[in-house]
Write a protein that binds this DNA or RNA. Structure first.
Ligand SMILES: Nc1nc2c(ncn2[C@H]2C[C@H](O)[C@@H](COP(=O)(O)OP(=O)(O)OP(=O)(O)O)O2)c(=O)[nH]1
Ligand SMILES: [Mg+2]
Ligand SMILES: [Mg+2]
Ligand SMILES: [Zn+2]
Length: 517
DNA sequence: GCCGTTTTCGGCCCGACTGTTTTCAGTCG
């Protein structure tokens, strides 16, 4: 679900808490303290309410991992823009150490060593020192570490950020098919954030079950698309393929496939919670299986072959990967209160599509036949209105042609139905981009914002809710305007949009396009 | 720093790979 643009403030505060965590680690303080700040940052990113509101209502400590100390820091940041803890740490830890942490393979210890001896505080200085072989004079650093630092800096420079689901899925499928074809393995699965369908994907994680991991690993690191091997071990390897995308492969014995899939699917926080739960029952959970503490040898698994078995042995029903984020799903699985997720089979049709008449790729006829073949009951075609210059929106004449085209297809494809719609632009002044008599010709009208994203929150909210109140408007599409990894959502009061939706009966689009979601 | 179907104090997930090391720390998944 898209979040209210207001939570930007939450994100900014989460960022400060993450930085406090890094600084605590660099300073060498108790790591659990740092872990707590990081965990608090994560729960704040998950919040649906502005922290300022929670602070005002004295409810900050209701947030998981927020207690007196973190709560005080948050209050100070809200009030003054910074917290005492943060300022003290910034004064105590040399500036620039944080920068060094961005280099892969450089953690708090290495950063400290480099700074203490060479006073290096920027990536550029680090690169220069590595090129001049000044790093290998330092304790615990030799030629290989120096080379790795140079490689990591190069990777940092060409890094493309997190991937969208369709891009990650394409890369993952290519590798899975390659491994299948070359090794004959069929016990292979995509894991990690891609299996959990997170909005964006950091890297790709694949797990394979095999008695002999050697040939699988060998095939993996020889894949033609590989640019760099980050690590190559007996059971786990990491490589970089095109544009800096990382792929991690984990190979385990077939008996451990379920436990390994569970581990590698994550999330990390879900794993930690499950393992903590196991521990309280004197059980040990790792990627090989569930064991009684003290009987942890391979072969002594209580459960390991399937995820269901492992969850069941912990008193839980199987949890869908999409829910494995430590947001209460484990308690829910314990009490049988997991929600029933919407599944692919539930999807009856699509309500937002574009054809080659505007900025889509294919003709309507192809799309309609394909949708029917997919088992859909309907397809709404919602090409653009003319106001958006670049998209070649439909003129009045082409609207007429569209209606005729759809009528013909509907005869051919019945009971499947092509719904004639439009994605009408909501202009900056709130007016819709077709006159009412044209809007009245469509079966459905989806209205959305495509310009003047910088409007003030009140203006944007009025612009959108105004469109929702128009009697001919059926739906609001992409209500936040965000493009993942590209454009932040515009400022809008989503609560007001939702209230207006329930008041007017306007639909709010659940955008399934991987670039928006 | 947080938290509690063992605990209000004493834990906090667990293991693989690398590089540097003569036995392991650091970093990452
Ligand atoms: N138990 C445990 N499992 C971890 C830890 N870190 C990572 N994992 C597991 C769960 C993760 O989902 C899985 C893959 O790690 P990644 O770093 O690729 O994370 P993930 O794919 O969830 O997110 P991403 O989109 O790649 O950033 O490995 C950890 O510290 N402990
Ligand atoms: Mg991943
Ligand atoms: Mg990974
Ligand atoms: Zn649009």
């Amino acid at each position: 679900m898209p979040r209210d643009a207001l939570t930007f403030d939450n994100d900014a505060i989460a960022k400060v808490l993450d930085e406090i965590a890094d600084l605590l680690e660099l300073k060498g303080e108790n790591v659990f303290r740092a872990v707590t700040y990081r965990a608090a940052a994560r729960s704040i990113r998950d919040l649906r309410e502005p922290l300022a509101k929670l602070a005002q209502e004295k409810r900050l400590t209701e947030i998981p991992k927020v207690g007196p100390s973190v709560g005080e820091a948050i209050e100070q940041i809200i009030a003054t823009g910074s917290s005492r803890r943060h300022e003290e740490l910034k004064a105590a830890v040399p500036p620039g150490l944080l920068t060094l942490l961005r280099v892969g393979g450089v953690g708090p210890a290495t950063a400290r060593t480099i700074y203490d001896h060479l006073r290096i505080t920027t990536i550029e200085e680090l690169e220069e020192a590595a090129r001049d072989h000044r790093l290998q004079q330092l304790p615990k650093i030799q030629a290989k570490t120096e080379e790795n630092i140079l490689r990591s800096i190069a990777a940092l420079k060409q890094r493309t950020g997190r991937s969208l689901i369709h891009e990650a899925k394409a890369a993952a499928t290519t590798m899975v098919e390659y491994l299948r074809a070359e090794t004959g393995t069929d016990r292979i699965a995509i894991a990690g954030s891609l299996r959990r369908y997170k909005e964006t994907i950091g890297d790709i994680d694949i797990v394979v079950a095999a008695d002999d991991a050697g040939p699988i690993m060998e095939t993996f690191v020889r894949a033609p698309s590989i640019e760099r091997i980050l690590a190559r071990g007996d059971t786990k390897s990491s490589v970089v393929v095109d544009r800096g995308l990382q792929i991690d492969l984990r190979v385990v014995p077939p008996a451990s496939f379920g436990a390994a899939l569970l581990y590698f699917t994550g999330s990390k926080e879900h794993n930690v919670r499950l393992r903590g739960l196991a521990l309280r029952r004197k059980l040990l959970l790792n990627e090989y299986g569930l064991y009684r503490v003290g009987a942890e040898a391979r072969g002594q698994e209580i459960a390991s072959a399937t995820e269901e078995e492992v969850y069941a042995a912990l008193g839980l029903v199987w949890i869908p990967p999409e829910l494995r984020e430590d947001r209460g799903e484990i308690d829910a699985a314990q009490s049988g209160a997991l929600p029933n997720l919407v599944a692919l089979a539930d999807v009856q049709g699509d309500l937002h599509t574009h054809t080659n008449w505007t900025d889509g790729r294919d003709p309507l006829a192809d799309m309609a036949r394909r949708a029917r073949a997919k088992g859909y009951a309907y397809l709404a075609v919602t090409d653009h209105s003319p106001g958006l210059g670049m998209t070649n929106g439909l003129s009045l004449e082409r609207v007429g042609a569209r209606i005729a085209e759809a009528a013909k297809l509907n005869e051919e494809l019945a009971p499947f139905r092509v719904i004639v719609g439009t994605e009408v632009d909501i202009r900056a002044n709130g007016k819709l981009d077709y006159p009412d008599d044209v809007l009245a010709k469509f079966d459905i009208v989806s209205a959305s914002v495509h310009s003047s994203f910088g409007q003030a929150r009140d203006a944007m909210t009025a612009r959108i809710t105004g469109a929702m109140r128009h009697p001919l408007v059926t739906a609001i599409s992409h209500p936040t305007g965000r493009l993942l990894e590209k454009r932040e959502p515009y400022a809008v009061d989503l609560d007001a949009v939702i209230d207006t939706a329930s008041e007017t009966g306007t639909w709010i689009e659940v955008n399934g396009g991987p670039e928006r979601l």
